[in-house]
Design a protein around this nucleic acid. Sequence first.
RNA 1: GGGCCGUUAGCUCAAUAGGUAGAGCAGCUGACUCUUAAUCAGGAGGUUCGGGGUUCGAUUCCCUGACGGCCCA
Length: 496
Amino acid sequence: MDDLNVVMRERLQKALEMEEAGVPLYPNGYAVPERLRDVLVEYGQTTKEQLEKDEPSFTVAGRIMSVRSFGKSIFMHLEDAGGKLQIYFQKNQLSEECYALVKKLDAGDIVRVSGTLFRTRTDELTILVKDLVLLTKNVRPLPEKYHGLKDVETRHRQRYVDLIVNPEVRETFLKRAKIVQTVRKFLTERGFLEVETPMMQAVPGGATAKPFKTFHNALGMDLFLRIAPELYLKRLLVGSFDRVFELNRNFRNEGVSTQHNPEFTMLEFYQAYATYEDLMRFTEELFAEVAGAVNNGELALDYMGERVDLTPPWRAMTLADSLVEIGGLSREAVEDPAKTMEAAKSLGLSLEKFEGHGKLLTKIFDLTVEPKLIQPTFITHYPLEVSPLSRRNAENPDLTDRFELFITGKEMANAFSELNDPRDQKDRFAKQLQARQEGDEEAHMMDEDYIRALEYGMPPAAGEGIGIDRLVMLFTDSPSIRDVILFPHLKPEKKM
RNA sequence: GGGCCGUUAGCUCAAUAGGUAGAGCAGCUGACUCUUAAUCAGGAGGUUCGGGGUUCGAUUCCCUGACGGCCCA
């Protein structure tokens, strides 16, 4: 703290002087009965004349965000997460000591004020302050009041500053909380039980991804941060909880980008006796519920300048059809592995030796179809090869009863009727194991206990995962996942 | 992992065809009792991301590293 800039030096000096004069810099125990939002909600519509008659009085607290000082009167704006309210000090309304303190306040200080509500000449709701307590002294200057904090790196590293000065960022995270709340309520109301399953797993399963590895000293064993809760949630189906969900963090040891954070929030839910087709309707309803909560009930929204309409029913098509109709492949190029390979090569795609025809189709899909799926679209009938936990399709055993949901060119959900035949599951794990041995680091590991659970009998069921971060991005018009994660992962700063 | 771009005052941004950096806001001093990006006057604030090189001289050019952004894999 020896390389302080001038502003901080002066501010610290001023703070010390205040303290010496008997003004505590960081007191506590001062009750704040009303929040700024309460005042705004209660009196937002009340006229100037009515206020002059009633003179309602309030005690509120907040951070000083701006100061407009005149000789014997001072205007400030007070702000908290819920709103912004102007406060007004007049010299002859306050004791001498109090007015002297007011003059020493800085933008960034947190204060409690009591006074009466009125409207200024410009009709702005304002508290004429009668009493003031400094609650917390700021010693680090806030970013510029007009441009705010723009530097993306600083905004992420010091999210607290971002939240102080950029109200739209607060708005995004308030919305995120509302979305999570709505999802929980939606599931709970439909009889789903919220559960918590291990985040540290001996066998990381339920998805194709690289895990983080850690070590348990006392047990002397490796553990992995979960890449998905799936296999544990399905164990609960075996254990007779027929509707369960978990809404929490997953961890994947992959690169960071505007679409990926190493830890991200996933909703997974499982419903016994349902099929993946039931979950399509369920998903449409869930999105409508969320829209009702955070999009003024509107089923249409704008994302990155594009209109997205969430009105059900959403379009559904098979993966194969999408490759033909949207990807522009010929039917033969989809069905004949040799022709598929040709098409892939012309797109610059190649295959690892452990990858087959099914994997190739999804690679072509990612490139040619996915970005074009702006409106909500269910893509169904994924190849068995890329769906090691999904039930086989009754008509075509090389396909699965599965869908992925795409909106704005991004995968939003993945769902399938669950494979509950322990023999088939064991074979699938064996195939995954083989791919792993051939170099596929993302292939599933054998989970003997999961097979054992299936042998006890898992009811026919369908399950789904929804990426909460992407859901929030959609509803907050955010281009990057870092815009919806409070503290996204960054490399450490060099020094403070 | 690759390519391109960026990093200058607390914040938002300028500038230098290589000659040691400037504005607004914030902050400081002063004036001002209805302002709201308040206004006016004065003063203050810099390791130009780090390291190395070329040069009489580098913030600028070259190399290298760190961090970040965008795109690609």
